[in-house]
């Protein structure tokens, strides 16, 4: 079922610009239950595509929001999280993020701040939900405050992929957030990236004068000397 065909169309991320397409990414440490959550939400209907070349699994999902058909691509990490960081293309054009930790393992909670920092580096504005998974193992955790979510002003969901608690709600809310983000925001980073792409093209056309770039006042993406 899970093909290993890393066809170009799957990674053609231009499609996420279309109105009815959203991309939602999952983040979090190894073995916090990201794939189990996906599978619980999609039940039998899922056909994950393993793109092992990219250490990533795609789950496609179709739903209807306000009488409109919406195609959702969920991106799951497939072991890439073990490099402590994801490839930039993982974040590219994402509309929402589901960030998971395991309530039985403190380190996965502590590592949220690293994941969150990396997320914000690439996607400063997209909605993000913090997920406390495996509450079936210890229901007492639902009585506690987890400051990370509060401090960052993020919603926190208590879920269990095993017994299903709040899993469907989590994904449906994530899709709604992704849609509303897409409809309402003009993401600053997207604008910058677009400008940069155009800029690159112009520069390529103008190969005669290499100094051109630095002559544009106030335009530094990253100063190599610093």
């Amino acid at each position: 079922m899970a093909g290993d065909i890393a066809s170009l169309s799957d990674l053609d991320q231009e499609k996420y610009d279309a109105d009815e397409q959203v991309k939602i990414i999952c983040l979090g440490d190894s073995a916090v239950g990201k794939s189990k959550l996906m599978e619980r939400f999609l039940m039998d209907s899922y056909r994950p595509q393993q793109l092992s070349t990219y250490a990533l699994t795609l789950y496609k999902y179709t739903t209807t929001i306000d009488d409109k058909t919406v195609l959702v691509d969920f991106w799951d990490t497939a072991g890439q999280e073990r490099f402590q960081s994801m490839h930039p293309s993982y974040y590219h054009k994402a509309h929402a993020c589901i960030m998971v930790f395991d309530v039985q393992r403190k380190i996965t909670y502590k590592n949220l701040s690293n994941w969150y920092m990396e997320l914000r580096e690439y996607r400063p504005e997209i909605p993000c939900i913090v997920v406390a998974n495996k509450i079936d193992a210890d229901m007492k955790v639902t009585q506690r405050n987890f400051n990370f979510a509060k401090k960052q002003g993020l919603p926190l969901y208590f879920v269990s992929a095993a017994d299903g608690t709040n899993v469907v709600k989590l994904f449906r809310d994530a899709i709604k957030l992704a849609m509303s983000y897409k409809q309402n925001s003009s993401d600053f980073m997207d604008e910058v990236m677009r400008e940069l792409e155009n800029f690159e093209l112009e520069r390529k056309d103008d190969t005669t004068d290499k100094d051109n770039v630095s002559k544009i006042p106030g335009f530094y993406l990253r100063d190599p000397s610093s």
Binding site: Y109, S113, N166, K169
Partner: peptide, 26 residues
């Protein structure tokens, strides 16, 4: 679709995982 509401404000206990964060880890 199992939905269980865990009201945020009724939580009395601060998670011990946050306690040693005096140096502002988060």
């Amino acid at each position: 679709d199992v939905q269980v509401d865990f009201p945020q404000d009724e939580r009395l206990e601060t998670c011990s995982w946050d306690e040693e964060e005096s140096d502002g880890g988060f």
